[in-house]
């Protein structure tokens, strides 16, 4: 227990040491978390876009089929 306290105190300079190390790793972890979130939003956005485009393409092909078949009947 005492050794842990000693370690945390860093010879009385604990505040400076832990403020430096803490902020550094907090920032790095925040960057990683932000990247993960960023990736999910991008995937969702691109997915939405491509589904939208896919629907439009499907609709277009349906129409083309329809016109072709109607053309065949005439």
């Amino acid at each position: 227990m005492e050794s842990v306290m000693n370690f945390l105190q860093q010879g009385g300079f604990g505040f400076y040491v832990w403020a430096s190390f803490g902020v550094t790793f907090a920032l790095m972890i925040a960057e990683v978390v932000q990247l993960g979130r960023n990736r999910r939003t991008i995937l969702a956005r691109v997915g939405r876009l491509s589904r939208l485009r896919g629907q439009r393409a499907d609709a277009g092909s349906h129409r083309r089929h329809a016109s072709e078949s109607s053309g065949g009947q005439a």
């Binding site: 990247l35 960023n38 990736r39 991008i42 956005r45 691109v46 876009l49 896919g54």
Partner: peptide, 23 residues
């Protein structure tokens, strides 16, 4: 690299291979 992958996905979102990846 992780950020780059995001940028690639956004910029190439028109192309087929990106759509496949997203699926």
């Amino acid at each position: 690299f992780a950020r780059l992958r995001g940028i690639i996905l956004l910029r190439e979102s028109d192309s087929g291979w990106v759509r496949k990846i997203v699926e």
